[in-house]
Design a protein around this nucleic acid. Structure first.
Lengths: 138, 138
DNA sequence: TATAAAGTCTATAATTTTTATAGGGTTTAT
DNA sequence: ATAAACCCTATAAAAATTATAGACTTTATA
């Protein structure tokens, strides 16, 4: 399951995508629309900005706005950013690799092999679904 | 990512699969082989037994053994049993459904729709990989 | 130029989940 | 009888997630 953080990020991105042509959007408005804690959402938007998905304008009249095209924001990226690895085990993670303590030799481990396949196939799914797909479903 | 519980369950199932024709296997042996806490593993094996994957023999000379064919143990089942939902959001979970608080109308939610697709495609992967595939990779 | 509105940033608190341990019970081979 | 092994429930410890707090900076505008 995704963390609330990631789920909220998706809601925020969707909201920003829907209001793409209306200039900046307040954290407050997104938080209120979805009943999310303002402060919690603030941290999430900050991460999305630092990762290059959002732009912001400070001061009175400021707010957030999308700076990437929805079609260029795949689920895989958002999930990796806020939740971490997509792989089911650390020993097959491309971006957050760590060896598994209980496995003596990774190259001899059937779990490792199967999980690497699962990772590849899962990645295909999550790289192909983008914010655009979400927006089309609204 | 899978919890350690699920990861340990997979190691245990693999071990039992490899020793399928040797009668019962001690919790102790599996725990030692993989450096897993005996007591923690005990609880996991208990769950696997209650779910119908393992049989056990009590008393001296007892232990655990597989009672299902490896090809009839898909990853999806093991994950659901020990980790819970495979879906990325509660609002699209087939087995652990819960509405999402931040979404007013599920049928109008683009995230919900996309996540339902992701669930279906993910499920295809995890239902098709079984313990047999893991055993073949050892 | 004072003020209020809005994002920035870091730290910490609260809560929940995961991981691990403990210990007494029951069964069974010898 | 005894020791080995699984059974079961409760609880403790640790880690991760979720949420809050508060001081700071920037900016529009009256």
């Amino acid at each position: 399951m995704l963390s609330k953080k990631t789920k909220y990020a998706l809601h925020a991105l969707t909201y920003l995508g829907k209001h793409k042509d209306e200039g900046t959007v307040l954290i407050h408005d997104i938080a209120e629309e979805h009943g999310i804690s303002h402060k919690f959402l603030e941290n999430i938007l900050l991460e999305l900005r630092k990762a290059g998905y959002l732009g912001s304008k400070k001061g009175k009249g400021g707010g957030y706005y999308l700076i990437k095209e929805p079609k260029d924001i795949p689920l895989s990226r958002v999930i990796r950013l806020l939740d971490g690895p997509i792989a089911l085990l650390p020993c097959v993670s491309l971006n957050y690799y760590e060896p598994c303590a209980e496995c003596k030799d990774e190259t001899q481990c059937g779990i490792n092999k199967v999980m690497a396949q699962v990772r590849d196939e899962t990645l295909k799914i999550l790289e192909n679904k983008t914010l655009e797909d979400i927006l089309q479903g609204e």
